[in-house]
């Protein structure tokens, strides 16, 4: 199979590879996929509690080149966005950017799932904090 130049670039030079402390309050972790399916993505975000901006994003992926590229791209895209903005990223955006062929669309779906899972984890951890934040905002 021939890969697009962008997939090859992300595979050769993956962005934001690494691990954040999953126990930290401001870190959300998403772990999606399964080893027997041939792909597992772990995407982590560090969110600024004041601004809700994703200041840091890290990933590690077990999977094919397209899976690695999809998650690498996802970390690039969510960095600097607010949590709500990041949720607007759709798998179809990733397909378009990386020119993924039909057989690789599930890689982009997994990347979208990983973003949602990481944000979901962060929201769960910070549910109380967020509610308090919303309250103070409302009071203003």
């Amino acid at each position: 199979m021939a890969y697009s130049d962008k997939v090859v670039d992300h595979y050769n030079n993956p962005r934001n590879v690494g691990t954040l402390d999953k126990n930290a309050q401001e870190v959300g972790t998403g772990l999606v996929g399964a080893p027997e399916c041939g792909d597992v993505m772990r995407l982590q975000i560090r969110v600024n509690p004041e601004t809700q901006v994703i200041e840091e994003a890290k990933f590690k992926t077990f999977g094919c080149g397209s899976a690695i590229a999809s998650s690498s791209l996802a970390t690039e895209w969510i960095k600097g966005r607010t949590v709500e903005d990041a949720l607007a990223i759709k798998n179809t955006d990733i397909v378009k950017e990386l020119s993924l062929p039909p057989v690789k669309i599930h890689c982009s779906v997994l990347a979208e799932d990983a973003i949602r899972a990481a944000i979901g984890d962060w929201k769960k951890k910070n549910g109380a904090a967020e509610a308090a934040h919303a309250e103070t905002s409302a009071a203003k």
């Binding site: 399964a34 597992v40 077990f62």
Partner: peptide, 24 residues
């Protein structure tokens, strides 16, 4: 393997067969 969450988990001693994966 530096990119692999599974390798990191295995190195930490996590039994991957016991993890509840979200098969898709």
């Amino acid at each position: 393997r530096e990119l692999s969450p599974l390798y990191e988990m295995a190195k930490e001693g996590i039994d991957l067969s016991k993890v509840e994966w979200q098969a898709h």
